[in-house]
Design a protein around this nucleic acid. Structure first.
Length: 116
DNA sequence: CCTGTGACGTGCT
DNA sequence: AAGCACGCCACAG
């Protein structure tokens, strides 16, 4: 599989994450058909140029922002998430139990609610 | 071609 | 909550 194809799959997976929800790198990798390649997802997002991809909805398994590509990224990512209604803990963490995409619970209600 | 190293991670201790 | 070990991959030497 070519590298570009992986990126395309990854971007497609990221686009599936609804507004107001987040997903982990590992989860995106799985959705993209690339299980165990979470770090590749990070690289793909770092090389992202397409503004239509909601890269800010991707955080690590701890519910924290990684962003190493740019100094401004972490701050921008958090700002965007908060703008979508995602709450952060005082420690700068996101409650994955409540915001993680694919957590099962109100998945249907979420897509039904339709933000925007 | 093989080895070393860094990386937007993850799970276990 | 913090630290450690592991695993996958791309890139440089």
């Amino acid at each position: 599989m070519a590298e570009d194809d992986r990126c395309a799959r990854i971007y497609a997976a990221v686009r599936r994450v609804p507004k107001g929800r987040v997903a982990t790198y590992g989860q995106i990798a799985r959705l993209a058909g690339l299980p165990g390649r979470a770090r590749l997802v990070g690289k793909a997002l770092g090389a992202l140029k397409d503004a239509s991809v909601p890269w800010h909805r991707i955080v690590n398994a701890a519910g924290k922002i990684s962003g190493r590509s740019e100094a401004d990224s972490p701050r921008e990512q958090r700002r965007r998430l908060e703008r979508e209604g995602v709450r952060f803990t005082p420690a700068g963490r996101i409650d994955l139990e409540g915001y993680r995409f694919g957590a099962g619970a109100d998945e249907g209600a979420e897509s039904f609610r339709r933000f925007g």
